[in-house]
Design a protein around this nucleic acid. Structure first.
Length: 608
DNA sequence: GTAGGGTTAG
């Protein structure tokens, strides 16, 4: 403990000698560290109460709080329980949850006063540390003491369940509270549940609950509507979000900047620019000014669509309206220029960030590194990668994944693996995307055995391989002529809880065609239709190409007829293969007629 | 008297 902290601990506590009459009066004391108001604490402690007054507002760090606590537990008579609670709250507000919990433990051991609120604070700390289970253990002590948890305590536990992803349990507890009338739910509890459901993607449940909430005496507020609108927007249900926005206005709840920002984001996600414009105007009519987040949503959306000029216009408007761009604005702009391959402009944005009094973040670097890698400019990307460390920025999982992917795309597999080793040495945890990139690297270099052990390792480390990860390995197996192993792996997908998609079917089907296993192809096509992923133009393309490689034109021809019926056209490489066949066969009107049907009309392929 | 609540980046 520092000397300064020890001093503060003592200075923050002053014994109050209360006058015999009640009421507050001000002492001529200007020391900001302790309270200048006294009041009679309690009749229980006699007319000359010696209970200390403690000023919590001047605690500025956690050390400070801990030494104040040490002083408090030693004081006799003991401070009131609410004073301990206030101190714990200060520690919680500083986000030192574990510290708050050890103080709570100490209180119990030393016999300091503890009440329901102290226990609720402890429950909240456990919840915020993702240990709702320990929170429930404290709930047990509520009942042992014969006290009843209230709406705040239950609300905290519900939040804790949502935080660890136990959505069903959270909902169950909430419903139990309602049905068994264990507490009267209030605005905060509704908001906790609405937020939890929305964030977990249970958006319809959230919307239903909001509807129910509207019929109660405690009505939903702007936060409640905003939470559900945000959830709807994140699930591309922009119309439902707009509908809810009108409904909240009808009910007299004014949307705030957050409500508008969420809705604008939702509309941008689905490219409804006209609605975005209308909503921005509505927002201005309601005297709500766009903030930096509103502008960033627009800059980001325009950049993602490749409409960088529009993004630049937004930046101009920001300047006019004195909305100061932040690092997120510039990061979006870097992404926008990268997407259009304007690498010089992107680099100049990065270089200008510091001149604007901002600090580039690792995300700024990630964006530009990604841009360079996508353009195959791996050396430039590598230069930036090294530059991060010079600028005091820590590479994260994305930086490494992006760079490894860039190196692999250039065939620099050894360099990529070296970087992965470096990543592991620096304890930067690979995520699903990192593993997917590595799997791709292994398959592209035909290291199938290693790819399999990678899949197992992923499962062991709790990073469950996605359909994409399996697709990569199955594709690698097919290309390596190991069709049987590929089919085995493919057949295992449902048992791993994964639904095969059209892409993965296409890989297997293409491989089957190249092997001439037409009966198996037929089975798989039926299975595909049944499972709801319809064959697409690629399915036909891989089949036609597979049969043509075997010179089985007779198998390819009915497929062209089927393609035509379904309104699919072939791509250029398939078209060239078909034209080759035509040349080989000489004049064949039936074949020519078929080819004309499936080759794009305006394509420059017919040189005859 | 003291406890729980909403938006942005690959």
């Amino acid at each position: 403990m520092s000397q300064r902290a020890a001093f503060c601990g003592i200075a923050l506590i002053r014994r109050g000698i209360a006058p015999q009459f009640s009421g507050n009066f001000v002492l001529p004391n200007n020391d900001p560290l302790f309270s200048s108001t006294f009041h009679t604490s309690s009749h229980k402690h006699g007319p000359f109460s010696s209970k200390p007054r403690i000023d919590f507002s001047s605690i500025n760090d956690v050390d400070n709080a801990v030494c104040l606590f040490r002083d408090m537990v030693r004081l006799r008579p003991q401070p009131f329980v609410f004073q301990f609670n206030k101190l714990l709250t200060v520690v919680v507000k500083m986000k030192h949850y574990s510290v708050a919990l050890s103080l709570f433990d100490e209180m119990r051991q030393l016999g300091a006063p503890v009440n329901e609120i102290t226990m609720s604070i402890a429950i909240n700390c456990y919840c915020l540390l993702n240990r709702v289970d320990f929170g429930f253990a404290i709930l047990g002590t509520f009942f042992k003491r014969g006290s009843e948890p209230d709406v705040t305590t239950f609300g905290t536990l519900i939040k804790g369940l949502f935080l660890v992803g136990e959505i069903a349990e959270a909902e169950k507890l909430f419903k139990k509270l309602l049905s068994e009338k264990l507490c009267e739910p209030n605005e905060v509890m509704f908001l906790t549940v609405l937020n939890g459901l929305s964030k977990a993607g249970h958006i319809l449940a959230a919307r239903d609950l909001l509807g129910h909430f509207e019929n109660l005496s405690c009505k939903p507020n702007v936060y409640a509507y905003s939470a559900v609108i945000d959830g709807l927007c994140k699930h591309n249900m922009a119309d439902d979000a707009l509908h809810l926005l009108s409904r909240m206005i009808e009910k007299g709840i004014s949307p705030n900047i957050v409500t508008y920002n969420s809705t604008i984001q939702g509309l941008c996600n689905v490219g409804r620019w006209k609605d975005v414009k209308d909503l921005l105007n509505k927002m201005l009519d309601n005297k709500i000014s766009p903030d930096v987040r509103t502008c960033n949503i627009l800059v980001d959306a325009f950049c993602k669509e490749g409409m960088v000029e529009e993004a630049e216009n937004v930046l101009g408007i920001m300047m006019q309206r004195k909305v100061c761009p932040n690092i997120v604005t510039y990061n979006a702009l870097i992404d926008g220029y990268c997407l259009r391959g304007q690498m010089g402009k992107a680099k100049r944005v990065l270089d200008s960030i510091a001149d604007r009094g901002l600090t580039p973040s690792i995300i700024s670097y990630n964006s530009l590194i990604n841009g360079y890698c996508k353009r195959g400019m791996v050396d430039e990307a590598w230069h930036l990668f090294l530059d991060c460390s010079c600028k005091g920025l820590q590479h994260n999982t994305i930086t490494y994944s992006t760079m490894i992917h860039g190196l692999f795309c250039k065939g620099r597999f050894a360099d990529g693996w070296k970087l992965f080793n470096d990543m592991e040495a620096r304890c930067i945890i690979p995520d699903l995307q990192t593993y997917t990139i590595l799997l791709d690297g292994l398959c592209k270099t035909q290291q199938i055995a290693q790819a399999f052990s990678f899949l197992c390792m992923m499962e062991d480390t709790g990073v469950n391989p996605s359909v994409i990860a399996y697709t990569i390995v199955i594709d690698g197996l097919c290309k390596g002529g190991k069709l049987e192993i590929a089919r085995d792996l493919f057949n295992q997908l449902p048992s791993k809880g994964l639904q095969p998609n059209t892409h993965i079917y296409n890989i297997i089907i293409g491989s089957l065609c190249r092997e001439g296993l037409i009966e198996d192809v037929k089975v798989l096509l039926t299975e595909m239709e049944k499972s709801g992923c319809a064959p697409d133009s690629v399915t036909y393309r891989v089949m036609i190409q597979g049969f043509l490689k075997r010179n089985e034109l007779y198998n390819a021809m009915p497929l062209m007829e089927e393609m035509y019926k379904r309104g699919f056209l072939v791509d250029a490489s398939t078209a060239y293969m078909l034209l080759d066949q035509l040349q080989l066969k000489g004049k064949d009107d039936v074949l020519l007629e078929l080819i004309k049907k499936v080759v794009p009309k305006n394509d420059d392929l017919f040189g005859f």
